Simulated assay, not measured.
Amino acid sequence: MIYFDNAATTYPKPPQLIGAFSDYLKMYGANPGRSGHEMSLATAKQVYETRELIGSLFHAENPEAILFTQNCTHSLNLVLKGVLKWGDHVVISDLEHNSVLRPVYQLWREHGVQYSVAQVVEGDDDATVENFRRCLHRNTRLIACTHGSNVFGIKLPIERLARLAHENNALFLADCAQTAGVEEIDFQAMGLDFLAAPGHKGLY
């Protein structure tokens, strides 16, 4: 079999992952942070150490700011629906996955959140950033965009877009579903406020 769908989920899974799942099922079956017995404490320790490892990978200082959600779509929805309120404005790109586009559209229809779509110009980051700049409003609360398109493989200049957001008193959300584990991502140096990433693609 020749597998071409790694943008959806990576296959085959490496043996290290299968081993880690096996270890979890055998040794870490308790709820972390809910009890004081040995297995619960061991599980809580594994969760915290995983937060530290993820923080180290993405250069994020505070392990407690790393949240585990059901998937990347859940993470993106958590930020979009947690940050944006009635009367706010958000800018997204024209390359967004449905996990961003659909909740933004729902927020517009049902909760009075305005949005604009900035055109990405392949091979011209200056033009892309300028298109985002033109979409900004006085009530822009958030810029949310993909780091890399799952359809075209186009990378967006998220460091520059994060700077643009902060210059205009807005927050920045990066959807790194396609790039986490493949591209170098420095949460602090890039000036990101939120980073969403799945565990089953480039991170395996």
Rank of each mutant, 00 (worst) to 15 (best):
F132M: 06
L161Q: 08
F172A: 03
A162Y: 09
A177W: 08
T179R: 04
V129D: 02
F152E: 13
E167D: 02
C176G: 00
I143V: 06
F152G: 13
S116K: 13
V117A: 14
D175K: 00
N150W: 13
N150E: 15
A162H: 05
T146M: 08
Q178G: 03
A127E: 09
R160M: 14
R141K: 15
V120Q: 06
H166A: 06
A174Q: 08
P157N: 14
A180E: 01
I158Y: 15
N131A: 09
A144C: 14
N131P: 08
L136V: 04
N169E: 06
H137F: 12
D125W: 06
I154P: 04
V129L: 11
F172E: 06
A174F: 04
A165E: 04
N168F: 07
G148H: 08
N169Q: 07
D175V: 01
S116W: 10
C135F: 01
A118T: 14
T128A: 03
D175M: 02
G148S: 13
E130A: 10
H147G: 07
A174S: 01
L173E: 00
L156T: 15
G181Q: 02
V151R: 10
I143R: 00
F172T: 07
L156V: 13
T179A: 06
A177H: 03
T128D: 05
R134V: 05
A174T: 02
C135Y: 05
L142P: 05
